[in-house]
Amino acid sequence: MKKVVLFIFLGFFCVACKQKSKYIHAGAVQLSTPSVNSSSIFATEKNYLEAPYLNPSHQLEIIHKESKTKKIYESQEKISLSQTGTYQIRSVASSFKASEPIELKVLPPGKKIASVIWDSNPKPKYFKGGDKVLNDGKNAEISFHSNGWAGSNEFFRLALKMDGEMKIDSLLIGTLFNPSAWIYPTASIKLIIEKANGDLLEKKFEIKVAGDMNEQWHEYVTLNLNESAERIQMEILPNELPEQHPGAGTPSWIFLDELIIY
């Protein structure tokens, strides 16, 4: 008899607990992706992660992809980014689904560029930080409204000047990927490489970054040069937004942050 009572109790218990609430529960909700940045693009002891808007009750899970190390940090903890490579970062909190990860690249220091000059006039609408943002060694905030970006949807020209001729293996171009704001790094790039003796060499590239239309991130595009140069003129023509984009057929916005040579 006792067993029968126990079974009835358990039966009710199971039914009660298994009844699905019509309301959303915490376990079904994902945390928002943190907006993260670093004080420098380059790996140094003084390079710290910044997540200014992280909810104080959430934590950051950080994976250094190359070394496969993982650590959880409290929201107010100081986090040093001293290793080069890609850090995969997401918000975590008990009960909730972890956020989508966001990646932050930390690069080895590049060769010195004496100056970067934006040649095109008039200056574009998104040029609050001027051309100095293009080699200040800092990541722009992920928002295109921040001062760290120079953005245009028309042809523009830049010049990179070195202190004398130097060997350049590659040129890294920091861009923003944010299709919902029509910022989509698809462009034709012409480089005119000028040597110390005045010789000119022309190289052409097509760049196109693809990804989820609802996401945004800082993307580095590598152009392999393997040339010596004293000055490089970059001519960038934004391509049309691709077919799958609501603005297909109109020019994309190209947002540049950092230009690095190796």
Binding site: Y23, I24, H25
Partner: peptide, 26 residues
């Protein structure tokens, strides 16, 4: 069978408690 069923049902309890806890409306 009776013993097994009781034990089996008992083993479910923590899981069911877990479900209950996490089924609470956010």
């Amino acid at each position: 069978l009776n013993t097994s069923m009781v034990l089996g049902a008992s083993a479910l309890i923590p899981n069911l408690f877990w479900q209950c806890e996490h089924s609470e409306a956010l």
